[in-house]
């Protein structure tokens, strides 16, 4: 009798299995497909440093380019690369990661090529600063000509500015020509 009651009760109740429509929403913190923006990357290596399974590595063609490589098969989707990238070049989007929606193995590897540029002052090949970072820095009023400088020349220009700020033009004594 009890069993009959249960069966009848169950027949009258709606299904308790989840329908596709009432799937839980994908949270904004979901760590899915990884994207990398070569335009923002400075090849600083932080992402490779924090990546425990070594899913990220770099190769380089000296004087021409640096390549950022990612292999999804080694990625554990911890999100630390995204959290630690100083220029926000890496983003783990809410889509399903590539390896899971492709049987052929496409999307398993990402490669971004970061072209080196010659320094407009000394000619050394270097990774240019991301445009957004440059805009933020140069908004403060640095010399437009310095945009194309390599890090060494930027440092040189900055210290030159400091020097002229502290030591008025005429006061530079004879022999005061330190190059550093």
């Amino acid at each position: 009798m009890a069993m009959l009651k249960t069966i009848l009760g169950n027949l009258l109740r709606p299904s308790r299995t989840r329908a596709p429509a009432d799937m839980p929403v994908v949270p904004p913190t979901y760590r899915g497909a990884l994207t990398h923006d070569a335009g923002r990357c400075t090849a600083c290596g932080t992402c490779a440093f924090v990546c425990a399974p070594k899913a990220i590595h770099f190769t380089q063609e000296p004087g021409v380019s640096v390549s950022w490589h990612f292999f999804i098969g080694q990625c554990s989707f911890c999100g630390l690369c995204e959290q630690n990238c100083p220029t926000r070049a890496i983003h783990l989007r809410a889509d399903v990661p590539g390896s899971m929606n492709s049987a052929s193995g496409d999307g398993l590897r990402l490669e971004s090529v970061i072209r080196l540029q010659p320094c407009t002052r000394c000619g050394a090949a270097h990774v240019p600063l991301p445009a957004a970072t440059m805009d933020a820095l140069w908004a403060a009023g640095a010399d437009e000509a310095e945009r194309g400088y390599c890090p060494d020349c930027r440092r040189w220009a900055a210290s030159a500015r400091l020097r002229t700020a502290f030591i008025p033009d005429g006061a530079v004594a004879e022999g005061g020509r330190h190059d550093r």
Binding site: P24, V25, P27, P28, T29, Y30, R31, S76, F77, C78, G79, L80, Q83
Partner: peptide, 24 residues
């Protein structure tokens, strides 16, 4: 599991901890 996913973004291996605090 849904609650954990909603908070951390993952059902397992939440990746919430860092030295000095939490990430999310």
């Amino acid at each position: 599991m849904d609650t954990l996913e909603a908070i951390s973004g993952n059902r397992v291996n939440y990746g919430m901890n860092c030295i000095g605090g939490v990430l999310r």
